[in-house]
Structure formats: structure tokens, C-alpha cells
Design a protein around this nucleic acid. Structure first.
Lengths: 146, 146
DNA sequence: TTATATAAGACTAATTTAGTCGTATATTGG
DNA sequence: CCAATATACGACTAAATTAGTCTTATATAA
């Protein structure tokens, strides 16, 4: 089906929510997992884990305790879709053989398609790198750039 | 992981094999499932089903009986990667919501990312449409174009 | 008429992904 | 201080998808 997994979607949605919120309500910087899971109907424990992972990778900063939550650490145009995809989906690897470090593919030696496939792979990867979270914010996000 | 499924890989490899074979041995047009599965170490029954599906979609023509097998029905630059991906992976649908016909996504209404995501989706789809099996054949495939 | 090939659908196994649960830790405010 | 609320994290279960198998039927060349 060629799709991102749901954690990636949840992560992008969560970050995007924080981006818009910071822009519209700059005085309220902290967003809790509960707020996002309620608003977008995402199972709370799952979203919590997603945000924890984002915090672990430094894309957001966590604040413990009552009134705690998460705060963005980067500007939206400094976060790429590729950054988020990498965390939850791992690398773009259209073909089986591109993920493994060692050559385990029985087709490898005589494979007719690995090189051009790799090129296609890189083109997609490039698209993801070039799309920032500011881009994802769409029209209303244009004001965020800069 | 953002990958094609194995059937898509097998199909591309099989077609590519037939493309090269037709070019290098124009007198031997028929290729059996057994030949391909042996050469690339693909489980025979699985590859057989893949080829059957390709035959059903008209990308190859089947020949029954002894000395039977499959023959390409199109020129390599008239087959796109997207054609093959569509058969085994279905449409490119980065986000969950793009595959369903009806809106079932609980995020849909307030979703911040669906439109720009759709754009990204289309860019990838375009890459797949623009890459032909002749392109996949790589350097040696250039002689095939035209 | 036998050996070999595709056709097709039902089935099972393996893997991946989604989601849950329990427990620990940090922080605010009464 | 303590109760309420939030994150941290690992182990676990459930659901869904994908990979691969098995069986039976049909067509064809030699």
C-alpha cells in the first residue's frame, strides 16, 4: 500500500498541532498528550508513547508534573517530514534489500533492478527531506516561515 | 518502513528478466515461472501466483502446456512502475485516510495535514508513473528505448 | 497419454503494527 | 507534606497484513 505507519501520522499531527497552537496562542506553550489525544481521537497511551519518543529524539521537550506536557524545541521549517518518518518508520527502503546492513537477498547478485530502484528510493527520500513541517502547515503555515 | 511488498518486487524482477531476455534472445519469447523462480530464488508457488495476476491484468500473456510460460505484451517503456505497484500494493496512500473511499478517520474534520500530505502523496505517485520498466533496466536498458 | 505448464481459490504461517497495562518518577498547588 | 496529574518506560497482547503453501483443475506439446 506504500504508507506511513500510524505512529508517524500521529506524530506529524501532534507536532502540527503544537506548531499552530504556538502561533495562535504564543502565551500557552505547553501541550499535554491528553489534549491532543482528546482532540484528534487518538488512543491516549499510544499517543503518549509517540510523544515520549519525540522527546527522546529531541524534537520536543517534556515537562513533568501537573500542567506538564510537551513544548516544541525547533521551528517548524527546521523539522522535515523525513525526520519524523525516520523515527517511526525507519529509513525509506522500497525494496527489502535496502534495509538490511548485510546482503541477505537471494536475488542480489543477478538482481536487475537494485540500482535504478535505489535511485527511485532516493528521489522519494529527497521529497520527504525537502518537505518541512512548515510546508505541512499549508496556507496558514506560510506566516510561520522565517 | 515505506516499502513495496515482496510481490511487487518479484513482479518487477520477473518483468525485467523478460525484458532483458527478449532483447538478448529475441528468438526465445516464452519464459516459465519455474525459470524465474530458480534463477532468482523466489518460492515457486508464490511467483506463479504473481505471474498469474500479471497475466490477468494483461501485462503478460500466458501460454499453457509443455514449453508454456509467459510473454510480455507491452514494450518496457510502456509499463510504469506505478502499473505494477498498483496491482500488488494498491494505490499510494501515505496516510490511512487516503485509501478508504468513505471518511472513517476520526481526525478528518480538524485534520491539519491531510491536504499537504495529499500533495506529497501525489508527488510520489508521479515519480512511480514517470519511471518505466525501460528506466529500471538501467544502462543496458537504454538500447531498449524507442 | 504422459509430462509439464498455467489457473485459481482456500488455507496456514510468519511478521508487523496497533494498542494496552503496570509501575516508577517528577512537579504543582493546596 | 500530600494528593492529583503529568511524563517515562518496558513488557505484554491483540489485530491486521503479508508471505507462503496446498490442492485441484485445465491446457498443450511431444
Amino acid at each position: 500500500m506504500l504508507h506511513f505507519n500510524r505512529k508517524t501520522e500521529y506524530a506529524l499531527l501532534a507536532i502540527e498541532h503544537m506548531v499552530r497552537k504556538e502561533y495562535q496562542h504564543p502565551q500557552v506553550l505547553i501541550t499535554s498528550a491528553r489534549e491532543i489525544s482528546d482532540l484528534y481521537h487518538i488512543p491516549y497511551p499510544l499517543l503518549a508513547k509517540v510523544l515520549q519518543k519525540l522527546a527522546g529524539r529531541g524534537l520536543v521537550k517534556s515537562v513533568h508534573g501537573t500542567k506538564g506536557g510537551y513544548v516544541l524545541t525547533k521551528r517548524p521549517h527546521d523539522i522535515s517530514v523525513a525526520d519524523v518518518v525516520q523515527i517511526f518508520d525507519g529509513p525509506v527502503a522500497l525494496a527489502e534489500c535496502f534495509r538490511a546492513q548485510k546482503i541477505t537477498c537471494p536475488q542480489w547478485d543477478g538482481c536487475l533492478i537494485k540500482d535504478p530502484f535505489y535511485e527511485l528510493n532516493n528521489k522519494i527520500q529527497t521529497l520527504l527531506v525537502q518537505t518541512s513541517l512548515a510546508d505541512l502547515a499549508g496556507k496558514s503555515g506560510e506566516a510561520l516561515i522565517g
